[in-house]
Amino acid sequence: MQVALFITCFNDTLFPQVGMATVRLIERLGHTVQFRSAQTCCGQMHVNTGYQREAVPLVRRFVQIFHDAEVVVAPSASCIGLIRDYYGHIAALADDTALAREIAILQPRVLELTEFLTRMGVTDVGAYFPHRVTYHPTCHSLRVLRLGDAPLRLLHAVRGIEVVALPDAEQCCGFGGTFAVKNADTSMAMLGDKLRAVRDTRAEVVVAADTSCLMQIGGALQRQRAGVRTMHLAEVLAHTEDRQ
């Protein structure tokens, strides 16, 4: 399959290793990855902060770049959630029925990485990762994309791994995009409880399907010198015995 990677501006700029891992993983499973370099940002920050008029050109741009892709895959539940649930609203705001139609045609072919793997019928991706990990189901993977236990099934199939359950896993980490800055105190109060849950697991690595939430959790773990690191699901799944 020809997979058009939507890397997301966040991963492209701040967490390139997540993109590299996603490429390695998808290629290892026998697919071809293409990277359309005109891509920039899906508009999530603008839409969620209320700057929705400003998101219109970004939505148009995304559709223009990816409209003829066989499948678009992104290692980000929140960006895919935005494309799926809000692109239609933005087209309506722009009063552009042609755009709305193009969005509706493209949407079913835009998948989050776990969704793509599930669609391909893969559970064991041939990964090896001999570490104690815990999985944080991000709000967008859990309640917007409804990934359910698909990410955990992928993790359990990894050789050498020890997966420990995260207490109160379904509680939000407190990131919420610009919420973490606008309501920094409330965000920190939520994060504090998430950190306690993470540390109670005695895990070495926290895994999730959104780098943004991992930046929130990981940023605080690092500040605490907690000895726990964060990794995107793609990074764990990309690990093999020959390539670590």
Binding site: L14, V181, G219, A220, Q222, R223
Partner: peptide, 12 residues
């Protein structure tokens, strides 16, 4: 507000 509690990795 971000760096009150969290570090940020440098831009690679």
């Amino acid at each position: 507000g971000w760096t009150a509690m969290r570090d940020l990795s440098a831009v690679p």
